[in-house]
Design a protein around this nucleic acid. Structure first.
Lengths: 238, 238
DNA sequence: CGGGAAGTTGACCACCCTCAAATCTGGTGG
DNA sequence: CCACCAGATTTGAGGGTGGTCAACTTCCCG
């Protein structure tokens, strides 16, 4: 909860390609900088926002990894996604002016706070931004379709294979290794996301190790045989 | 594929409260009418759009029920939702200018075709419309969170109970009975949506009948004890 | 009115969950 | 700096939920 007032312009942010629209001219780019009100640091385990809180802003992740989760009155909860640098969170809050899920930092993190009113005002004038906002929301809808497919029709191995491939692919797009990754979440959080129990996640990872598909040391995972993982994901339902 | 050119204005459409923004003045309301280019009739089993097709428009459902589904190369498929009058479909197409899922009519249906360029142009000028578009997309994101919760952490009975309650609630909002509904989809389609096999859907429905919770005659369902269904949904995970 | 799709039900079993115990890790305080 | 402890992870044994396969019935739709 330490609001940071240091401003770094979007126009020279190294995450611009991931988080902001491309194809804007210089004048438009400078107007974009107005969108980010402040930066905010969030410590590990702290929430960026919590379900029920008033919605005011979207957040662009600068550093760190978040999880979002929905919780029910009876104590069930479901991780709905893991978000990393360059990704936008908070879209769930727009419908009802209140957030519908919690966003929790899995490691110390920093976000750009973008008041939604500013986004709306500017996107009325900068067509590229308007389109970009629409695309971000649409992308989230399509992503969730993919998760529904995973939860609705894949077996444990397939889910975990898809999860690992997805994580490593997103990390690779951010300049990290194509084959090694450091998981920022527990087995239980992975399980919640994939609709599995933590023991099943652990066992399935062990199986990948046995089969020579991956090497696992706690949170550190090295994908030895990515092709095998892809084969598991694409295996015709069994 | 029979484009209908008959135009009926949004401003006097009886579904306006469901599908269009409220709180617009008369002048703004009339401009809204420009959004709907045409009507289009879709026959049972026909697709309104198909995954891979170029995205041009959103569709507001006037009559009929649709399902949307994603399919994978290896033949898996997953129903991602059932949509009824007043709901908007096609949002998945915005990200990549191509549709990411199929929309299939479960009965003869009619939709309003709303070219997305027109929506974007007008929402730059009518703030209420801009906000409304954002809310519609956000609502879809939140709805999918709910489905993820269902698929990730509920058992068969709970899923089906949640499904029936959700259907009847949406139908009730459209002026239909609070306790009776006619399912427009097969057991297999329900199963795909809920991550269950059709036999499990059938068995679970039979169990509801045994327990005096519902009466089922094929696609016709009468909810006898809605409270019991709610209890099943809210039962602490078990 | 007939054929085919949709739905129901039963038997069996696989996959994943539950419960339990042991081990490992990283952070904290003495 | 080390000991300790809570939390995270692994692994095992056993059981239950829902999947699979199959047969039969019912209901539309053409």
């Amino acid at each position: 909860m330490t609001p940071e007032t240091i401003k770094i312009a979007c126009s020279n942010c190294n995450l611009r390609e991931l988080c902001m629209p491309i194809g804007l001219d210089t004048a438009e780019l400078e107007r974009l900088d107005q969108i980010v009100a402040t930066r905010r640091k969030v410590k590990r385990r702290d929430t960026l926002f919590r379900h029920g809180e008033r919605f005011t802003s979207l957040y662009a992740i600068r550093t760190g990894v978040f999880k979002t989760r929905v919780t029910t009155a009876d104590g069930r909860d479901q991780v709905t996604g893991f978000q990393m640098a360059g990704e936008i969170i908070g879209l769930d809050g727009i419908v009802n002016d209140r957030h519908a899920c919690d966003a929790v930092a899995l490691e110390d993190a920093e976000v750009c706070v973008m008041p939604f009113e500013r986004i709306e005002a500017l996107s009325r004038e900068v067509n590229g931004l308007q389109r970009h906002v629409h695309k971000i929301m649409s992308r989230e809808i399509v992503r969730e379709h993919g998760v529904m497919l995973l939860l609705g029709s894949m077996r444990a191995e397939e889910r975990l294979a898809a999860f690992l491939l997805n994580m490593v692919q997103r990390l690779h797009a951010r300049g990290f290794s194509e084959s090694e990754l450091m998981l920022r979440m527990t087995r239980e959080e992975i399980g919640s996301y994939l609709g599995l129990k933590l023991e099943t996640v652990s066992r399935t990872l062990s199986k990948f190790v046995e089969d020579g598909i991956a090497e696992v040391q706690q949170r550190h995972v090295r994908i030895v045989d990515a092709a095998a993982l892809r084969r598991i994901v694409d295996s015709p339902a069994c």
